[in-house]
Design a protein around this nucleic acid. Structure first.
Lengths: 245, 245
DNA sequence: CGAGCGACTATACGCCGTGAAGTTTCTATA
DNA sequence: TATAGAAACTTCACGGCGTATAGTCGCTCG
């Protein structure tokens, strides 16, 4: 067989990349539904069946796309919150939330692809289509929860009984080494924060907020402020010390 | 034309009902994607084109189904929270949240139909497919927010500047007469609560929580407790008076 | 009784995913 | 360098989809 630099393999990689890129363009212009093998082939100048040489089935292609799009989302939000000062946990949470919603608004079809029913009849593989990217996103929020934990802990009275066994091992493999001081309840807090923000963005992207409210942005900004406040850290770096509560 | 009780009209109503029921059965067993005119016709014993005598297009049928399913959801949650004691706002919120998630878990395909990308290529009509049901759901949460408002108000410091003009007129037409003491910020609070709960349930229904957590129920129960607490009302009726804060 | 209308079928078109079989083109080896 | 084989791609085919058009049957009412 040819080595890594073989001509054939290079062409193959290029064609694979082109298929994916055309698929993403179709999705951006016509929604996830527009991702059809025939449309991709038409655009590239191939026969639909030729794509089967690169992806075993349409669902395989979709899964790959979900992976890439989800990874792009994770990159975006990670970059955003990591660019905020380390000593400003409230600012980091704000950055995460704004980046998450901003990405969703800029890539609504991508959001639907990752978080919705992507495409007619699509069946995600066992363990989800993009577990790594999902864990990355959750780990990002866990970082925010970890930074806020000294403040938030006292706001979450000790009735919650989360244990490590409640969580997915793949997630914990990333979270526990990175944030050794974050207890199970802290991970639960991270997931709840994720849920809060995902809920509003999801309602907005799918048009359910628009039928209730003119300006979804205002609602989201309020949500961020209240989220930060509920964690016991004030926006814009003005926050009490953990000791003074 | 025949009167309201005419034989023809009765038969027509029966066939219309049968089409919708078969569609819902197909959805329950095979997901929203399974709702195809041809499958419905096959099940009923008609030709696919015969359905065009009852619904102008497939999207029309889908819109009707969304309306019915959304209404069923609204009925369920309304019944649930209204059955809790009036003087137990925390219990009512709990009832709403449990009923919402319970309905979603019992009717995951219905949840996807209402809140997700229902069906390949479906385009919801302007104003959303089921604005009435959506407003009913939001009005229900507004009732909960209204009951909690005397307690919650002091937890939401006065930096939010919501106005009536921020919200949809159809929603306000239901909310303002029913809860004359609830200010715009209270409606915003209701929408945020909706977002919180929708987010977690949506992540769960679409399988995104399962890749992070073993027991989504535990997370949701924690969410309810913290939600009630954040509003300043204690669970199970033990709550401070608004005056004592 | 007969005209008209409503309910329904038959046929057809262009989409879709995908399987089977055939063809071309490149590559590795004898 | 000749050649066997693999890889890339095409052609043809099948069944499913929404839906447009035209035609058919039977009930109902004047």
């Amino acid at each position: 067989m040819a080595g890594t630099g073989g001509r054939r393999e290079r062409l193959r990689a290029e064609t694979t990349a082109e298929i994916k890129q055309v698929a993403l363009e179709l999705m951006a212009s016509g929604g996830p539904d527009a991702i059809t093998l025939r449309a991709i082939a038409r655009e590239i100048g191939m026969t639909a069946n030729a794509i089967y040489g690169y992806f075993a089935t349409r669902d395989d292609l979709i899964t790959t796309l979900i992976n890439e799009v989800y990874t792009a989302l994770a990159d975006t939000v990670d970059t955003a919150w990591q660019n905020a000062p380390v000593d400003d946990p409230a600012g980091r949470i704000q950055a995460w939330a704004q980046a998450f919603r901003g990405w969703a608004l800029a890539n609504p079809e991508g959001f639907r692809l990752v978080y919705g029913d992507p495409v007619p009849g699509y069946q995600a593989p066992a363990g989800g289509p993009a577990p790594d990217a999902a864990h990355r996103v959750c780990t990002g929020i866990a970082a925010l929860a970890d930074a806020a934990w000294p403040y938030a802990e006292r706001r979450l009275p000790a009735h919650s009984d989360f244990q490590w066994s409640d969580f997915d091992d793949g997630l914990l493999a990333k979270v526990r080494p990175a944030f050794p001081d974050l207890p199970p309840a802290g991970v639960a807090l991270a997931l709840r924060i994720w849920g809060h923000l995902h809920g509003l963005v999801s309602l907005e992207i799918y048009g359910h907020l628009r039928t209730q409210m003119i300006d979804a942005d205002k609602l989201f900004q309020e949500e961020i402020v209240q989220l930060v406040r509920s964690l016991g850290i004030e926006p814009e770096g003005r926050r009490p010390s953990p000791a003074s509560g």
